[in-house]
């Protein structure tokens, strides 16, 4: 059985085990929807008081917010195993169990769990996207839709990379994982606003170090048909999400290094 078919089996096993507790799955999903909904209310409050912020309207910011939310919810759904790697695999020794099976550890971690509740954030973001569309009177041309899919794909790769890096950290320490959590959840938050609002050093960081801007800010400009007020060339904007995939590739290189460190030290 090939890796993709095996992931399908893992997926259905994960769904069945969550369906052992259907009420819990529904409540967790609703909870995610409600808690993320509060975020958008706080952003609305900001714009309601100040009108546009540095030339960005609330509708446009909702667009950033929604696409980031959709990307993150899928990444969180797919890489749960990496998210809990330090606590549930390294600390408990369960990682040995994965290494005892004739499949790559990364594949097994992806298959470890698919949390239904992550769709709470997805639904919330999808609703915001609908509202943003009508607020801006935005017309979804086929090009815009394709570009949005491409942006989300890059975003999924980007956030998945953050979860993989968080797991890599666990090979060295299982005690400072909160530091990486600041990157993942902080990333979601930072990506919800247009890059031009940030200070120069932070913009550099979000473009070249942790390339969040490449999977949010730049391609969303392209979707909205705006030029970058910071001066990035128009041809670059739709290509930017490639950075998400490059980032993911680098994260997996780090992962391999971590695994080989683990098998040589046993901890």
């Amino acid at each position: 059985m090939n890796a993709l078919a095996l992931l399908g089996r893992y997926f259905s096993a994960s769904m069945r085990s969550q369906m052992q507790y259907p009420a819990s799955a529904i409540m967790l999903t609703t909870g995610q929807l409600a808690s993320t909904a509060i975020e958008i209310v706080s952003i609305w409050a900001l714009f309601d008081r100040f009108g546009a912020v540095k030339g960005w309207s609330f509708g446009e910011v909702m667009f950033f917010y929604a696409l980031i939310g959709i990307s993150f919810s899928f990444a969180d759904f797919l890489t749960r195993g990496f998210d809990v790697f330090g606590t549930d695999f390294v600390r408990t020794g369960a990682f040995d169990r994965l290494l005892l099976r004739p499949r790559s550890a990364a594949l097994q971690l992806v298959g470890h769990d698919f949390r239904i509740s992550r769709f709470g954030r997805f639904f919330q973001a999808a609703i915001i996207l609908t509202i943003a569309t009508s607020t801006l009177n935005f017309v979804w041309t086929p090009q815009a839709a394709l570009l949005a899919l491409w942006t989300v794909a890059g975003g999924i790769a980007f956030f998945s990379a953050l979860f993989v890096l968080q797991a890599v950290m666990a090979f060295w320490t299982v005690e400072s994982l909160e530091a990486v959590n600041a990157l993942t959840y902080g990333g979601v938050y930072a990506g919800q606003f247009p890059l031009s609002l940030y200070a120069r050093w932070f913009r550099t960081f979000l473009i070249f170090i942790v390339p969040l801007a490449c999977v949010a800010y730049f391609p969303v400009l392209a979707i909205l048909g705006r030029s970058d007020p910071l001066g990035a060339p128009d041809w670059f904007l739709p290509l930017a999400p490639v950075a998400g995939f490059v980032f993911l590739g680098l994260a997996f290189l780090a992962w391999r290094f971590g695994v080989s460190k683990y098998t040589s030290t046993g901890s």
Binding site: A5, A13, R16, S17, G93, R97, P102, R103
Partner: peptide
């Protein structure tokens, strides 16, 4: 084949038979 007395290799929330089926796919 490896059995650790203190660790499980089955899926906690799944029926035994489903865990066996998954292992069939994992081990090809």
């Amino acid at each position: 084949g490896v059995v650790f007395g203190q660790r499980t290799q089955l899926w906690w929330d799944l029926p035994v038979i489903d865990g066996f089926d998954l292992l069939r796919d994992i081990y090809r």
